[in-house]
Amino acid sequence: MTTTHRRPARRRVRGHARRGAALVVALVTIAVLASVAAIASSRARQAASVVDNRRSQVTARAMAESGVLAARAHIESELRDVGPDSARVDGVFDALTASNRALVQDTIREGAFATAVVDVSARLDVNAAGAEGLQQLLATVAPPDEARRLAESMEARVRGEASGASLQNDAARLLRWQRDSLAATMLGREPTSRAMHPFTSLDELLTVPGMKAEWLDAIAADLTVDGDGRVNRRAASRRVLAAATGTLVDRPSRLLLISRGWRLGHVLTREIQAVFDVNGTELRLVRWREQDR
């Protein structure tokens, strides 16, 4: 009688089981490592993207600032070159604002800029025109009663008359205005604006109750928040001249330089708007605004 031994078969089964378990462990380990590698790669790409975007932001701002400096230097150089000749000075200003093209533009390594010039003294200053001037301009796009009401509301906001809670602050501002105006007079400069709560952008006019976007759009090219109350009659439109209540001059008293900078190959753009007083052959900074585009 022959005896059958099954122990080797059990060993083979156990050996297969161990190899199967090892294979599962290996597959799980590979899957985990692949997941870790994928996460690490994703984070590396995100970090690289953040660094690249930051680099683009820094480059765009540096280019925009370079555009302002280049345009300012160009204008001052042009004014110095023509000297005191009145006709030639007028020609310089006419050339600056006659074209819609950039005044200066350049590429520096991986960045670029383009800067345009706007004669803001050819527009009606919202903060200095007064209710009468604002009403005159608004009446060209809105019914007379609406134009009057809007003009009075805008003037009340500018003069600080809209909120009784701010009377103490307004009194302090009035004292500072009187002090600064006296100092300006003694130094032979233009008095500072008496606006208590000036508008800082044309978009703020939409907060005035009753103002319609279509009305503002129709007169936006004739309005500014960067003027000094003087109007350049040689460059102003007919309706600006009709509404002007301040001093009329024959040359720009203020210029707005709009400079945009960017990194080549990237869509992010930095815009700087710099307002300058024109003082002889010099431009003196009055206001500086920045925003991403």
Rank of each mutant, 00 (worst) to 15 (best):
N53V: 12
R54S: 11
R54Y: 08
V58K: 02
T59M: 10
A62R: 03
A62Y: 02
A64G: 05
A64K: 00
E65G: 04
S66C: 07
L69G: 00
L69I: 06
A71M: 06
I75A: 01
I75Q: 01
E76V: 07
E76H: 06
S77Q: 13
E78R: 15
L79G: 03
L79R: 11
R80G: 07
R80H: 12
D81G: 00
V82A: 02
G83Y: 07
G83R: 09
G83N: 07
P84D: 13
D85Q: 13
V89Y: 07
D90V: 00
G91C: 02
G91H: 09
F93Q: 09
D94V: 01
A95R: 15
T97V: 15
T97I: 15
A98W: 05
S99P: 04
N100R: 15
R101P: 01
A102P: 13
T107A: 14
E110V: 04
A112R: 14
A112V: 06
F113W: 09
A114S: 13
T115I: 01
A116M: 09
A116D: 05
V117S: 02
V120I: 11
S121Y: 06
S121V: 04
R123G: 00
R123V: 02
L124N: 06
D125V: 05
V126Y: 03
A128P: 08
G130K: 11
G130V: 08
A131R: 14
E132R: 14
G133Q: 10
L134E: 07
L134Q: 06
Q135K: 14
L137Q: 10
L137C: 07
L138N: 04
A139Q: 14
A139W: 03
E146S: 14
E146L: 12
R148L: 14
R148A: 15
R149H: 12
R149I: 02
L150F: 08
A151R: 08
E152A: 13
E152I: 05
S153W: 04
M154T: 07
E155D: 15
A156Y: 00
V158N: 02
R159A: 11
G160N: 08
E161N: 08
E161G: 04
A162L: 14
